[in-house]
């Protein structure tokens, strides 16, 4: 069931959909007949449409939901772990009548994507993990995102000096924008509930990753200071058949920070050719 509640955007639509009784906000783009691509966002993503998704919508039907408990989606009782969220997204695939989908997950979204692919491996045609949390690398030191202020987090997320400065400015401005600040806090609270302890990973996930059958891409920003590139190596150890792409000069969000380079890699991986 889906009801459009928002006006047609230039390159995407916004609507509410209901998944087994929970209302969530969904951004979609691309031809309805295109192969579905589910993009699972990261914890700090406040719901703005990313230009990179519009690019992917040239070849796919892109679905970009706000996770339950995040952004403009409702809370859902009983979601206490990423594993619970993974089941929610399998229900969502049923709801949008997608027997299978490309699943791209950034950061927290990558963790959900990997977990989902271990539960119903055949629902995932291709899996892309972008600076994904979800596993632990004993030898890689990571900052604790939960002790950092919005301004400090903004500085940790971006590598490019101008983008970092802009993100820090936005984080400062949030103090004067209660609506936006509340949305940020709600995402932080939802993330804390999922990943406070164990810190942003599931110790059992590595025992299930062998179930993934989809071709898998591990994409990482070489200069990620929130989840350092050592984590790309950890994922690669755990998913020996996956390909790894490290994007130079990018921080935690390569699709935002170096979209052209990241999209080239993603398009090649999806078999939809390099950038025209």
């Amino acid at each position: 069931m889906s009801t459009a509640t928002a006006a047609q955007g230039a390159d995407h639509e916004e609507r509410d959909i209901t998944v087994r009784g929970t209302r969530i906000r969904m951004l979609t783009a691309g031809s309805p007949s295109g192969a579905p691509l589910l993009y699972l966002h990261g914890s700090g993503d406040l719901g703005t449409w990313q230009p990179a998704l519009a690019e992917l919508a040239q070849t796919h039907r892109v679905y970009r939901p706000d996770h339950p408990g995040f952004g403009a989606s409702d809370d859902k009782d009983g979601i206490d772990s990423v594993h619970d969220l993974a089941f929610f997204y399998l229900d969502l695939l049923d709801e949008i009548e997608a027997p299978e989908a490309v699943v791209v997950g950034s950061s927290l979204g990558g963790w959900i994507a990997a977990d989902l692919a271990t539960i119903e491996p055949r629902r995932v045609s291709r899996l892309a993990l972008v600076d994904a949390c979800g596993v632990r690398a004993d030898d890689v030191a990571t900052p604790d995102m939960f002790v950092h202020s919005p301004v400090e987090l903004a500085a940790l997320i971006y590598n490019d000096r101008d983008l970092k400065a802009a993100a820090v400015r936005r984080a400062r401005a949030m103090e004067h924008d209660p609506g936006l600040f509340e949305r940020y806090l709600r995402n932080q609270i939802a993330t804390a509930h999922l990943g406070w302890n164990p810190y942003l990973h599931d110790p059992k996930l590595p025992t299930r990753l062998h179930r993934i059958i989809a071709p898998t891409l591990i994409m990482w920003g070489a200069e990620d200071h929130l989840l350092p590139v050592g984590y790309a190596r950890r994922w690669a150890e755990l998913l020996p058949k996956a390909e790894t792409a490290i994007i130079d000069d990018a921080g935690h969000l390569p699709l935002v920070e170096r979209p052209a380079a990241a999209l080239d890699i993603l398009r090649t991986f999806l078999g939809t050719g390099a950038r025209p």
């Binding site: 939960f146 002790v147 950092h148 202020s149 103090e175 209660p178 600040f181 509340e182 806090l185 709600r186 932080q188 609270i189 993330t191 804390a192 509930h193």
Partner: peptide, 21 residues
């Protein structure tokens, strides 16, 4: 630090918005 004093979810969303801002 504020985010240590008031970790995410320790306060209700309404209180947190007020206290942290």
């Amino acid at each position: 630090p504020k985010d240590v004093f008031f970790p995410a979810g320790y306060l209700t969303l309404t209180s947190a918005t007020r206290v942290l801002a």
